[in-house]
Amino acid sequence: MQNLGWRKPTPGLVAAEMHAQVGEGLSVPKSKAIIAVKKVAAHIGMKPAQLMLLDILFAFSKPQDWEQGQRPFVWPSNQYLMDQTGFSLPALKRHLRRLGELGLISFHDSPNGKRYGHRDGQGNIVEAYGFDLSPLAARAGELEALHQKIMAERAQQQQLRKELTRTRRSIRARLVEAIEGGLAGHWKQLEREFNEILSNLPNSKKEQGAMKVALEKLTNLYHIIEELFAGALDLPSTQKASSEKITENTNPSQLKIEPHIQNTNHSHLNCKTKPAVPDNLPQERGFTFETFNQVCPNYIKLATELCGQLRGWEDLKSASQQMGLMIGITPDHWNRLTTQLGIYPSAVAIGLTYEKHIAGEVQNPAGYLSGMAKKAQIGTLNLGRSIFARLSRDKNCAV
């Protein structure tokens, strides 16, 4: 067994040495090795202090040390590492041992416990005692595969949460419409079942199994409500058959339910039903996307950097939830806002609030947006007036 530097052999340290031997037979670029571990650092239990320490050790290695048949040894002194990190000696030793236990470095000390090394005229290591970074050469592929798996799981979780949100909003809109419209049916009982499912939704994003079960329950409830709703309105049988076909052929993971847009000016009790219309686009409220760009240049610039080029209202809508996070707007707050204002007006409201926040005009963005939602409920919110007032002010300032 390789000398582990006066340390008691543990399964982690022994495994690290075995990885080091494998890494000697590989040619892995230095940049690939460090990027691979950084991508999954938090997932494998690394703390920021340990990642910083590993970065410093990497800086001592040279590109040729990572070629096949070589082992990237580094031999900085404890004093140098303490100066660079600010660690005390006990803390430094603890973090170094943790890197070894994680299988990221191996220890190769001289018989007297000193670290030193020599290179030949071509810069290749001919003798060295210190830290061996070879385990990362052996594990770079493994860590990259782990990162891909994490990204796939994260994307699946995000999609699942989107399905939950869409289904939940569709059910709530139908229940409100049926109850307020006085439609015949056991709507209160369905509302209780709906609230019970919501109360048992998992709080942790990691509980994917529980989220799938909740989505399946909500989907089944949605179809029950739609069938009862259609029956109460006495819709044509062909429309019912279409709904039943969707129920039979669609499983919960495939279901795509668009949120229902409630029209408060017309009753569904009328015999003639009108097709649902999307939220009013902002240009229908008196301003264009180009005008919005002029009024909110800082918002557009950051949104472009984070989400890509914004070519119109659809791109703005897609970027708005992520941009809301920049000013403390949680996903739940965003969902409530879109319910109260509509999707496109919410996107405009986020942009205006962001612009005012960085200008120092708004100290509490979440509270400001809640105030806008209250104005919308009583019919006094006018986004067009806000847009043109800000545009006029900016032009006056320019003059």
Rank of each mutant, 00 (worst) to 15 (best):
L96V: 11
Q84D: 05
L92T: 14
G86Q: 15
S106V: 07
F107A: 10
S110A: 13
L104D: 05
S106P: 00
R97K: 10
G117Y: 00
L92W: 13
L96Q: 15
P90A: 09
L102N: 00
Y116A: 08
Q84C: 04
N112Q: 08
L96R: 06
P111Q: 11
D109K: 07
L89G: 06
P90W: 11
R98L: 05
N112D: 15
L102C: 06
L96D: 12
L92R: 12
G86D: 12
F87A: 05
H95A: 00
R98D: 09
M82V: 08
T85W: 02
G117A: 00
G100V: 03
P90N: 15
K114Y: 04
L81E: 04
H108M: 10
E101G: 00
R115L: 03
L96F: 09
G113K: 03
N112P: 01
L99F: 10
A91D: 02
L96I: 12
S110L: 05
S106E: 09
G86V: 12
P90M: 06
G103Y: 01
G100E: 07
A91I: 03
D109N: 02
K93H: 14
S88N: 10
R94D: 14
S110N: 14
L96S: 09
E101W: 03
A91W: 07
L81W: 10
H108V: 09
K114A: 13
H108A: 13
Y80C: 06
R98E: 13
S110I: 06
H108D: 15
G86M: 08
K93W: 06
L99I: 03
R94M: 10
K93A: 12
S110R: 14
R94S: 12
H95L: 00
G117L: 02
G86W: 09
F107C: 13
P111H: 07
G100Q: 12
Y116S: 15
S88M: 04
S88C: 09
L104I: 11
F107H: 13
K93V: 01
T85Y: 01
Y116N: 04
S110W: 08
I105R: 00
H108W: 09
L102D: 02
P111V: 15
L96N: 07
G117N: 04
L81D: 11
M82E: 15
Q84K: 15
P111W: 04
Q84M: 10
